[in-house]
Amino acid sequence: MVTNEPRKNRIISDQQAENITRVEELAYEIKVEEVMTRNAVTIPVTDPMRTALNIFRDMHISGAPVMNGQQMVGILSIEDLIRCMADNDLSAPISKYMTDKVISISHNEPVVEALKFFVNTRHGRLPVLDEQEHLVGILTKGDITRGLLRALQRERQEEELRRYRASHLFDDIESDRTSLILRYNIKARDFTHGGAASSNIKRALMRLGASAQIARRCGIAIYEAEINLIIHTTDGGVLRVEIEPHQISIEAYDYGPGIKDVNLAMQPGYSTASEEVREMGFGAGMGLVNIARCTDYMNLESVYGKGTRLKMKIFLNQEETVGERSTTPKEPAA
C-alpha cells in the first residue's frame, strides 16, 4: 500500500480501487450472523448499576443488552454508566439508566445494513435477533471490520490457488485418453527426505484442482507407501502416479526383499520394523491398513526374495475430477 506519498497527490491504484469495491460487495454478500459475536454478555434488568460497572470493567466491553429473562428489554452503554456515576447513583436499578427503545438487526440481514446504521447514528453496537426475536449475538463496528478482513484474506488465498491450478491441462490436449504420469525414485533409509515425493504429489493434485478430500486421501496413501519403501526395501523403489480426469492410479514397486506373508502384513498392528525405526515414529503396523482405507482399490503382490508391487486407485466422480473435463465414463473398470 502507498503510505509515504503526500496526501493530495495520493492516487488510488487500480488494485486499491478493486479492493474497495470488493469490500463493498462483501458487505452486501456477508450476513450479520457470520461476523457477529455470539454468546454476547448480557445484564439482568433487575440488577443494580454497580453490576454493569463490574461487568464492563471485567469483560472490557462498553455496552451490553439488558435482559428480563429471555426477553431483551433494553441496552446499556458506557455513556449511560457515566451519567449514573456522575449522579453517584450506582445502587439504582439498570432500568433507570438503560435505553429501552432498542434498535436491533436480524441475523440474516447483509452486513451493509448494519454499516448504514453505524454511519447514521452514534450507536456503537447492535443486538442481533433471530426470527423468534431471540437475542443471538451482538454486532460492533470492530466485528464487521474483522469479518470483512477475514473474508478478503480467504478470497485472496483461494485466488492464489486458482491461479496455480493447471486445471486446463486435460482440456487443452486432444487425445482419446490423456493422463499425466509422475515418477519419483525413493531411496532406502532416507528418513530425512521421506515424504518429499508424497508432498509434491499432493501439491500437484491441488494445483490440478482436486478436492481437499481427494488430495488428502491420496497424500496419506502415497505417504504410507513411500515410508514403506524407505523402511523396508534393500535398494529403495519407485513411486508412479498416473492422474486422469476420472481416476488416480498409484504404484509403488521395489526389487527386494519382498514380503514373506502378505496376509499377515495386511493385519492392523503387524509390523516387521526394527526398534530403531519405531523410535522414529514408524512401524505402528497401520501403514497398509491406512492405504486400504484411503483408496478405492488396492492390490499388494510380493514375491519373497524378489520384490513388491503395491497398486492403488482412487476414483473421481464428476465434482471431484481433476482438470476441467470428465468425459470418461463415471463407472470405470477397476
Binding site: F191, G195, A196, S199, K202, R216, G219, I220, Y223, G281
Partner: peptide
C-alpha cells in the same frame, strides 16, 4: 523429526 511435519501436511 521432519516426519512429524510431513505427516501433519498429509493429514491437513
Amino acid at each position: 523429526n521432519p516426519q512429524v511435519v510431513r505427516t501433519a501436511q498429509m493429514a491437513d
